[in-house]
């Protein structure tokens, strides 16, 4: 078994050496890693390097490697093509449409989630009789899994017997092909996604609103600010760190939307909701084209890195106080 650390022991001993000068020198000397320390350093870091290596670095490098090849029916890289896969991808109209769809989806989901979540939180933050009940209701979607909400919304969106079109018929409005019309399909999946994100977002915003000191509003009341002015000039800036957090979390989460898309539209109709992540899945595990999927993964990783960088550069500046 490990028998304490010899070098640490020695350090303690040198500390007892007489005279302050010597003591200082002894400490400095011991500050450098000794042979034994290095051994322990590797011993402790080794497992995490190993785990990271196997589960993070190797797959990353393998993905990069695969993206430079053509893969055969069994996923084996056979023909080296250099950057051809990237060229094909970036000149593909369908892929560009996918990027665009992802952009619309991510921005749509993030924007509406934030707006709706903040709105609900602002309502729930009021002192109204029975508001506790609504606070509970608003958080309810947190407990609903992707599959359940997808099925729930699928029922609503059913073109002939769904609730939405039944209501439309009742009101003599034209019915909508919620999931089969390319434009409406995007609206539908965004709606569902926003609905799913809402519980969590509401809770976070509600917590943030509650933590804004009441005296700030009192002071504003006295100094003559209307409640609208207070919302935009006190509430929003005060919760801006939360705002940033929610924006980043929702963006990342909607970038990764997979289950929802798979269950609701499977990327259709006409690729209208074929988001980048879903596309990778389809190319790899349905079509069996690992090279293309790997290329798409690398491109997506780059896109996400760029967006994250921009977010931190732009938003971090504004939320600091």
């Amino acid at each position: 078994m490990i028998n304490s650390f010899p070098s640490v022991k020695r350090r303690r001993q040198t500390n007892q050496a007489p005279g302050p000068k010597e003591e200082v020198r002894a400490n400095v000397k011991n500050f450098e890693l000794q042979k034994n320390d290095k051994y322990y350093a590797w011993l402790f870091l080794g497992p995490s390097f190993l785990v990271l290596g196997i589960f993070v670095f190797y797959p990353m490098l393998r993905t990069l490697y695969l993206s430079l090849f053509l893969t055969d029916s069994f996923g084996r890289p056979t023909v080296f093509v250099g950057l051809q896969n990237y060229l094909n991808l970036l000149t593909s109209k369908v892929y560009m449409a996918s990027i665009q769809a992802t952009g619309v989806y991510v921005i749509g989901v993030t924007a509406f989630t934030i707006i709706c979540g903040l709105l609900l939180a602002a309502v729930a933050n009021q002192k109204i009789r029975g508001i506790e009940f609504f606070r509970t209701i608003f958080t309810a979607t947190m407990g609903v899994s992707v599959s359940v909400s997808a099925i729930f919304w699928l029922f609503m969106f059913n073109p002939s017997i769904g609730v939405l079109n039944q209501i439309a018929l009742f009101l003599h409005l034209p019915t909508v092909n919620w999931l089969t019309n390319p434009h409406w399909a995007m609206v539908s999946v965004i709606t569902t996604s926003v609905w799913m994100h809402l519980g969590f977002t509401f809770l976070i915003f509600f917590g943030a609103l509650q933590s804004v000191p009441k005296t700030l509003y009192d002071a504003a009341d006295v100094s003559g600010a209307s409640s609208r002015y207070q919302f935009f000039h006190i509430t929003l800036p005060m919760i801006s760190p939360t705002f940033f957090f929610v924006a980043v979390i929702t963006m990342i989460s909607s970038f990764k939307s997979f289950g929802l898309i798979d269950l609701m539209t499977a990327g259709g109709p006409t690729n209208a909701t074929n988001l980048l992540v879903y596309r990778i899945y389809k190319d790899a595990f349905v079509d069996g084209n690992y090279a293309v999927a790997s290329t798409e993964s690398i491109v997506l990783a780059i896109i996400i890195a760029i967006i994250t960088f921009i977010q931190f550069k732009l938003l971090a500046k504004r939320v600091n106080y």
């Binding site: 700030l216 002071a219 006295v222 003559g224």
Partner: peptide
Amino acid sequence: KDRNLSMVFQSYALYPF
């Protein structure tokens, strides 16, 4: 706001941003 007075709070109520 229409009482035409000002107020100083114990916590100062400054806007941190």
